[in-house]
Design a protein around this nucleic acid. Structure first.
Length: 824
RNA sequence: GCGGGUAUGCCGGAGCGGUCAAACGGGACGGACUCAAGAUCCGUUAGCUUAGUGCUUACAAAGGUUCGAAUCCUUUUACCCGCACCA
């Protein structure tokens, strides 16, 4: 077989598509819209990796599919070019992030075109463009106005390597999400936050109306972490201190109260005589990282104060403890050692009373605080709880809450695990936060008209935030009083950009507005979003939050960004580990393209397994795809149109039907098997034009280059890229052809079996084969084909053929669908 | 600790109550073609048995539901992933 010059074909069609701008779309189309989106990539200097090749191919396949189905498909691309990774990479390369990013993007574009992805390049955007991040700043100002953005001092996660604070979502196992070897430290700093918690309930409820994988929804629900409980006021030194509990039924068992060691009002609780002890304890805690904290034993120190239990007036000691989160609930808990394992351990350690107030129902055993080995955390019957004795836990919760409500010392409360989003980063390569600090006026937002606050190019990289090294940037007039002001030098978390970029695509050139609502409402929400599992609790929470906020602003009509979401698997290296440069196991898409062609790579990536599963890269997976495409090319290249035959028509229609369903549900592995089977059934005598076109169309979504080339070759009109998805003609699907085919297969295997047995018996091979077929099935069996399959000369006779050769009368064994066989 | 997932033949991987010794690809083996190699084509690839048949053992392990299980349920084991002192 002649080598096929894939590279020539690819370049040719890349150029044609680009020249004719065939993937550019407009809102004016009469077709129904469809918005397909892959998450926009961070343009790393290393170019595309296999994971990119995989996800974006999935997006492109789907976009092409919908386009052929007659939708007005928006399939845009952009670059998440702002952010820490770019800054760090640039510093390492000794370049300015702006230059570095520009180069990286160029490289990315080249490779993306090489992959054949059908983007509307006219809408391309990059987040380091001031015309883009201007709107980041604009949204921020709106959030400030609405009280969604705010500043507070809080214990925050700090990564030494990033030299910056991190969001809660960016801390993984106590480590920085970018630096697996860097423990995150807890620091107390004043920072900017976005009040995502205000949308906690909406974020939870919205999940019910979107078509996302159940797993993704569960993880988000888990992350939002709604729990219903009671907020109870404990009085300490004449002041009310609320605590949150999901177990108000255990309130009579409270023997102490613990306030978080990170609580900002902790000092108010400490009595003078305990101050030294408490300070010692705090110092000890401070020196441990968050990671170590997790493995640490529960520890605490008595503050010297006592809290009054509102239900019975009992006074209990107040401790400061390392196991209470300052950021959850009120940063303080009521401790019931008999019925909570952490409280139990703490009480044991410090010799605090353990009062049992719940006894299990239906068990002989009853608990006693002194002899307990661990806390009884289950539900049961109340004891030692005054008027509530005998109630079941479930009932008692309500009754006790009501009793507290009457005293105005308690109330029902819904608590979420979700924290407000910390967006300040002490780094250069991000969207500047548009505020100015003025000694007189305080925190003053930059005027909308003065946006964007541009990142100055001249900064010095080194220790600390590079932005502070540019005096012109830092020292500005106060927008309010025109006095001396100091500009905020923190920049925004990179996830701010990705939280609304999908909207900008709908009107990317707009210089006056963030986007035209008409355009956004036309294209959005995204019909099919595609991305990795790692984004479920970061980007996908944030983008939903921004969408809800922008809806509240009245800019858009919908409150969920993506109706459908597909999570693709991760591409692992051949050693099973993640592909990474340091491990030296990276395979670059470009290498494979050069060797086998882009179509081969695209086909291979989605046919090796179901795309929602992780795949282990192995060059072998490319081999089969490559062979197949060569055969296809060869076949069509030499194709002379033949006649339509009912069998092929049936097969074609059936294949189209099945492939359509498979593509719709991202089961490309199965779709491709069917496409291959269809091809295998094509006769050497050629196929008719309609069949040829149908085949090329369905293959096209996977292999756009070669199919364009062959489309042209067989005289197709225009581009296949802009043709139409073949319609299924159910009437043409006839199962009898399948049955006939199966019968032939069975006959072949029967013959092979007999040949084998005969060889074993006689010690030598038979030379000829005769089969005897029921007369009306005679057309199913072709002598030449059978001979080829079996590797022997096969004679085909009808059972009633007088001239048949049948020395052993085997023709009598023939049945419908099962010919008699004789070998000699 | 909580939550999610996965376990299939030499390998990757379909299958999700009967039509399953199990799609498809890769590998291996045998054959055709060739002077030869490659490519291509055909076949074989659990075991025994048999002129195209039948049987046995099989889908991590053990139980169960069912007329019937790779497929459903329970328990166990192993691996992967997410969350994690959330009161």
């Amino acid at each position: 077989m002649k080598e096929i010059n894939f590279s020539r074909i690819e370049k040719k069609w890349q150029k044609k598509w680009e020249e004719k701008k065939i993937f550019e779309v407009s809102e004016k189309s009469k077709k129904k819209k469809y918005y397909v989106l892959d998450m926009f990539p961070y343009p790393s200097g290393e170019g595309l990796h296999m994971g990119h090749a995989f996800v974006f191919s999935l997006g492109d396949i789907y976009a092409r599919f919908k386009r052929l189905q007659g939708f007005n498909v928006l399939y845009p691309i952009g670059y998440d070019s702002l952010g820490l990774p770019a800054e760090n990479a640039a510093i390492k390369a000794g370049e300015h992030p702006a230059d570095y990013t520009k180069k990286s993007m160029k490289n990315f574009m080249k490779q993306q075109k090489a992959m054949g992805w059908s983007y509307d390049w006219s809408r391309v955007l990059w987040s380091h463009d001031p015309e883009f991040y201007k709107w980041d700043q604009w949204i921020f100002l709106k959030m400030l106005e609405k009280g969604i953005a705010y500043r507070k001092k809080a214990p925050v996660n700090f990564c030494e390597k990033c030299q910056s604070v991190l969001a809660n979502e960016q801390v993984i196992d106590g480590k920085c999400w970018r630096h697996e070897d860097c423990d995150v430290e807890v620091k107390h700093l004043e920072q900017w936050f976005l009040r995502i918690t205000k949308y906690a309930e909406d974020l939870l409820k919205g999940l019910d109306k979107i078509d996302w994988p159940e797993n993704a929804k569960k993880r988000q629900r888990n992350w939002i972490g709604r729990s219903e409980g009671t907020e109870i006021d404990f009085e300490i030194n004449g002041e009310k201190w609320p605590v949150f509990t999901t177990r108000p039924d255990t309130i009579f068992g409270v023997t102490f109260v613990v306030v978080s060691a990170q609580h900002n009002k902790l000092i108010d609780l400490v009595t003078p005589e305990r101050e030294k002890e408490v300070q010692k304890f705090l110092k000890k805690i401070k020196s441990v990282s968050e990671k170590e904290m997790e493995d640490m034993e529960k520890e605490g120190v008595f503050t010297g104060s006592y809290a009054t239990n509102p239900i019975n007036g009992k006074k209990v000691p107040v401790y400061a403890g390392n196991f209470v989160l300052a950021e959850y609930g009120s940063g303080m808990v009521m401790a019931v050692p008999a019925h909570d394992q952490r409280d139990f351990e703490f009480a044991k350690k410090y010799g605090i009373d353990i009062d049992v107030v719940i006894q299990p129902i239906g068990e002989n055993e009853s608990y006693d605080g002194k002899s307990m080995k661990e806390a009884f955390v289950g539900y049961g019957k109340l004891v030692n709880s005054e008027g509530f004795n005998g109630l079941k836990s479930e009932e008692a919760k309500g009754h006790i809450t009501t009793a507290l409500k009457i005293k105005k010392l308690g109330r029902e409360k819904i608590q979420y695990k979700l924290r407000d989003w910390l967006i300040s980063r002490q780094r250069y390569w991000g969207t500047p936060i548009p505020v100015v600090y003025c000694d007189k006026c305080g925190i003053i937002p930059v005027d909308e008209k003065a946006l964007p606050v541009e990142l100055p190019k001249k900064v010095k990289f080194g220790k600390g935030n590079p932005l502070e090294t540019n005096d012109k940037f830092v020292n500005v007039k106060c927008p309010k009083c025109s006095g001396k002001g100091r500009r905020e030098t923190d920049t925004m978390d990179t996830f701010a950009n990705s939280s609304w970029y999908y909207l900008r695509y709908t009107d990317s050139g707009n210089k006056k507005k963030i986007f035209d609502s008409k355009n956004a409402n036309y294209w959005c929400p995204i019909d099919q979003y595609i991305g990795g599992p790692e984004h479920i609790t970061m980007h996908l929470i944030y983008v939903r939050f921004y969408t809800k906020f922008l809806k509240d602003l009245g800019l858009i009509r919908f409150d969920e960004p993506a109706l459908k979401y597909f999570t693709q698997g991760i591409v692992h290296a051949s050693d099973g580990a993640k592909m990474s440069k340091s491990k030296g196991n990276v395979v670059e898409p470009l290498e494979i393209i050069e060797k086998y062609g882009a179509d081969t790579l695209r086909l291979a990536l989605v046919s090796s397994a179901s795309p929602d599963k992780d795949i282990i890269w192995d060059e072998k997976i490319v081999l089969g795809s490559n062979k197949f495409l060569k055969k296809v090319y060869e076949y069509f290249n030499n194709l002379k149109f033949g006649k339509v035959d009912a069998k092929t028509e049936s097969k074609l229609n059936k294949t189209i039907k099945e492939v359509t369903e498979n593509v719709e549900s991202f089961k490309h592995n199965l779709a491709i098997i069917k496409i291959r089977a269809l091809f295998d059934s094509f006769s050497d005598e050629g196929i008719d034009k309609k069949t040829a076109e149908g085949f090329l169309k369905i293959l096209h979504i996977y292999c756009p280059f070669i199919t364009e080339e062959l489309w042209e070759k067989i005289g197709g009109k225009g581009f296949v890229s802009l043709s139409d998805w073949p319609k299924v003609d159910e009437k043409k699907i006839d199962e009898k052809f399948e049955k006939a085919e199966e019968a032939v297969e069975k006959t072949v295997s029967d013959i092979m079996n007999i040949l084998k047995i005969v060889k074993e018996k006689n010690g030598k091979e038979a030379e000829r084969v005769y089969i005897y077929v029921i007369p009306n099935e005679i057309n199913r069996y072709d002598s030449d084909e059978l001979s080829k399959r079996v590797g022997k000369s096969v004679g085909v006779f009808a059972v009633n053929d007088k001239a048949k050769i049948d020395p052993e009368g085997k023709s009598k064994k023939a049945k419908p669908g099962k010919p008699g066989i004789y070998v000699e």
